[in-house]
Write a protein that binds this DNA or RNA. Structure first.
Lengths: 199, 199, 199, 199
DNA sequence: AATGAATGAGGCTTCATTCAT
DNA sequence: TATGAATGAAGCCTCATTCAT
């Protein structure tokens, strides 16, 4: 049984990896399921054993990659012992921007729309309260020397701004290359944070 | 001759109108060129006389609709005699949000990504300097009682934030319905504007 | 051992029951073997332990259900002490029509073609002479006060007429609903029987 | 234009002919649309220009062939100057049986079920009263020296009996080869007709 | 005897694009 | 200019059957 389950995992993993490569290389529209299975070395039917269609595997990939990225960011933040909510938010966003900037493939997959969708469902929705990332963020806020109003609104605004402006600056260097745009972005974020501080 | 040209215009217009309806109803992926021509009452070959493919007509539609929307906003702003750059920016964004909120079809076509692309190319790029909208914005800034640094960066940041956060709030009522979110959005925008004022 | 055999019987029975439900609900074309095994709660491979394919289990089902139905009819006929071949034939046909009319699922499975195929192989073929139903019919004829010519032809003609006309009347109420059509049908059958009587 | 329409007719005809050959040779289940178009020498897409799917072309074929067959029968009946409704019905049925018996391919296509469906909709349904065949039958009845009750019931009963019993006798020679069975069949039909005569 | 993951042939359907009229 | 029949590549998905466990 261990053998069978191991085999299942391997096939699934092969499909994920191949899909990731193809989606980020050719784009999802230009990627056929035939391409995925051919490159993954499995039969076509096997794909349908694990995924409903092309969009199913894409969504699962995005959620996976996004969570991974955010966890990495939080991990590094802890190691670096960054203190204070404002600094922590800037650190996380900077980390994410840097990773996405250096990994264009990942950035393409987790495009502006999608990363936001994933982020929102991941750490702006309080419902899924056993979500580690969401927990961590709120702990960060609680540990800050200031108190904050409308925390979810604040996080939402920051995420949307950073995601949208960051995406465009990274991809099109407009209005400035990302390195030159960062100071403006981070200043705006700091202002937003300040505006949510309790008097 | 005028007759022939008139006929051309009518067919083209029919294609535009039908495409708009279908794109906003079924989405672009689910809309086939056959659908467009069938509903427009022209032959399939005729489509290729005017457009390269589906995406060509879509792009032309978006540019057209976006410019129309922004021109309307500026027009109303003038009529209302809104003064001061900060108030003017808020007015324009509020106008656009209100129109998109009440016209879901239009909002879907000019989705988050696209509106930004169009906006950027339309009024954040200085190249196309005979662009009326771009001109108007710079006139507004010049007429303000304050002077501003890094004007294009400022406009970019505002547009990205409003576009991205506004889109999500409108469509998903997250983290708040658009009406409740607006005060936060506008406060953030005002802070961004202030941060670009010369000392 | 008895335990194992019991287990086999249970699985087989589950397959039969599920197949019956699905065939009569969705039709055989729309029923996949996967559907059958999934609903029966057995593994796919198990199906092939007992049946060659979809059509194998269907045929076995039909034969089974048809024999059951005819045996029921004969049983009731005996209990009711119906006498005389003509009356007995009418009684059996009436019984079958009534059951099929009230059990549309069964009627769909044992459709016009199939019921005839099954019936013919069941009680018009003399080869399988240890067939109880076939025996019973011939006993009925022998016990009648008249003698008959070309008995198999007579039975065949009656079965075909009743099966085909009855099926259509039941399912489509054409040219009349079954209740209104019955008198015509039974009159025709009586005429056929009479025409086979020895002078 | 005549050229284009002519071409359309040719392609459609090619599809019909090929489908007929394949359906009657390999059966409809074993015939793929690919087979049809390949043999017809047209592109796959062309098939979908004229037919919805495999069953669509089959149904159209059956209706076409059935009407053709019945019209032939009526035509010959007139040429032979057959008089009297009873004789006319026997003549038609005999004609149809003979053709189907000698053309096994046609007989397979227009199988028991289907011929009935087609026949019923063609000449037992009074609604489509501009149907030539239906008209002809009623004229025949009107011209007979006897008057008849429940004409549609009578026709229905005859058609069902002849179709069902004839089909089986032809295909399986059970209970007798068709030539030997005919006398019994025709006797039964005559009895049915007589039973519908007005006193 | 029982399982169910894996297979891959096989069939279906759509649709952008061309081109003769 | 305008037409729309024809094309056929391209992609999707199902499902009967096998076989290692």
């Amino acid at each position: 049984m261990g053998k069978i389950d191991e085999n299942k995992r391997i096939k699934k993993e092969a499909l994920y990896n191949t899909a990731y490569t193809l989606f980020t290389t050719k784009g999802i529209n230009a990627t056929a399921i035939s391409d995925i299975v051919k490159n993954a070395g499995v039969a076509k039917g096997t794909f349908y054993l694990y995924f409903k269609d092309k969009y199913d595997i894409r969504n699962k990939l995005i959620v996976h990659k996004t969570k991974e990225l955010l966890n990495d960011a939080l991990e590094h933040m802890k190691q670096e012992k960054i203190l204070g909510f404002e600094e922590q938010v800037i650190y996380i966003i900077d980390y994410v921007i840097n990773v996405l900037y250096s990994d264009r493939a990942l950035s393409n997959l987790i495009s502006k729309n999608l990363v936001m969708g994933a982020l929102r469902s991941t750490f702006l929705t309080g419902e899924d309260t056993d979500d580690e990332i969401y927990q961590t963020l709120h702990l960060m806020i609680a540990a800050d020397s200031h108190a904050y109003n409308d925390v979810d609104v604040m996080l939402f605004t920051i995420v949307e701004l950073a995601g949208s402006a960051g995406y465009n600056s990274m991809h099109y260097s407009e209005p400035l290359p990302i390195d030159e745009y960062k100071p403006f972005l981070y200043r705006a974020i700091r202002l937003i944070i300040e505006s949510h501080r309790e008097a």
